[in-house]
Amino acid sequence: MNENLALIYQSLPYLLKGCTITIGLVGGALGLGFVIGIPMAVGQVYGNKYLSGLIALYVWFFRGLPVLVLLFLFYFGLFSLIGLNLPAFTAAILVLGLRSAAYQSQIFRGSIQSLGEGQMLAARSLGMKKSEAILYIILPQALRISIPGWSNEYAILLKDSAITYAVGVMEILTRANFIATRTYKPMPIFLACAVIFIILTYGGVKILDLLENKVRIPGYGREER
């Protein structure tokens, strides 16, 4: 037992460096998904038929394919096809981000639609342009409502980040595997790896919960927590 603990202790620095990579992956993907997802949501709710059809197609594709297939498709296939030579880390953020955009756009779309027509009507009646109404009235509310769904997306992305092992990203699981194959002691290492993920997952969600409480509008939406 003691030698197992010692091994874990020695491997920690190397594993924790993987944490920075993992958090970088998750942060980058969440950010990319957010930046692309919001316009997509707005486009689906307020855009014309063709635009929302196109967006629906994008969502269908990126939600319907397994993460692993998307990674292989883009990293080994499409990126080389168009001559893009990205390091695995960047490619992974791109792929995970594009996929997260598909999921996030649906979260935001649901929140926007749950606001009802009244908000837009009131804003327009004050003389606001559609774009102003969206920016100052709709989105501030929709984003707050979206936090629980978004926090779920964080948890999912965190766990999906481990799949980037398949394209060689040096995140937590890849490093754990590296140590395990060299020391022939897979169990303690993989269990330590699992614990790190549990801490990141539940810790991250807790932080997002605190965020939700901070930006809460009194009397709005979910009261329990």
């Binding site: 766990k159 980040s161 799949i163 993989f190």
Partner: peptide, 15 residues
């Protein structure tokens, strides 16, 4: 629910 499926698979098959 707190760990990636892939980590669980690794524990089962390699661990």
């Amino acid at each position: 629910r707190g760990t990636p499926l892939l980590v669980q698979l690794f524990i089962l098959y390699f661990g």
